[in-house]
């Protein structure tokens, strides 16, 4: 988990902001948290959310804990739906990736503006939420794929065995 979160945080920091989408960066850390929320138990999801949030805030000017709180909300919301969806499905990953990215952006934006840490008009929060909707939907399946492959490689989860020719 630590490796996945650190790799996601570093990749997110190094990624240049996308100007057309409100200067957002792809929510790789959130996607990693979402992976643990949908594919693991509540404990792993919340630990990933807090650790991911601390990493996120430590590498940005946001006060420590704000993103951890938002990630916990996202992980909790996604975890509630864990038993109702197929986490392997691309549709699930795109849907939850996009939805939680918007949720976190709006929640974080409101918290930061209310705390007067961020000077930003409300329309920019909406613009950024739109950007995160697109990027969240795009990057989440990729993060699920990589994190899942890594988990199988190191033996955290059982390898997929074909049954009668089907995986």
């Amino acid at each position: 988990m630590g490796f996945v979160l650190i790799a996601a945080a570093l990749a997110q920091v190094m990624w240049p902001p996308v100007a057309l989408l409100g200067r957002v960066k792809p929510p790789l850390l959130l996607a990693a948290v979402l992976y643990y929320a949908l594919c693991r138990d509540t404990g792993a999801a919340l630990v990933a959310a807090v650790a991911g949030g601390i990493l996120h805030d430590a590498l940005s000017p946001a006060p420590l804990g704000y993103t951890a709180f938002c990630f916990c909300m996202a992980a909790w919301a996604a975890g509630r739906a864990r038993d109702l969806v197929m986490s392997d499905s691309l549709v699930t990953q795109v849907f939850f990736g996009a939805l939680t990215a918007v949720l976190v952006t709006v929640l974080l934006g409101i918290l930061l503006i209310r705390a007067e840490v961020l000077v930003s008009p409300a329309e920019r929060v909406v613009w950024r939420a739109g950007g995160q909707l697109v990027l969240g939907g795009l990057v989440t399946p990729a993060v699920f794929l990589l994190a899942g492959a890594l988990d199988r490689l190191v033996g955290n989860v059982a390898r997929r065995e074909p049954i009668d020719g089907f995986e």
Binding site: T42, G53, I54, L55, A58, L59, G65
Partner: peptide
């Protein structure tokens, strides 16, 4: 869940110098 909630509340209320040390360490 309670432990995580406490952790988040503690994080949100960390004194500025401690928070800065954590950020600088990371």
């Amino acid at each position: 869940i309670l432990a995580v909630l406490v952790a988040v509340v503690v994080l949100l209320n960390l004194p500025a110098p401690v928070a800065r040390r954590v950020e600088a360490g990371a």
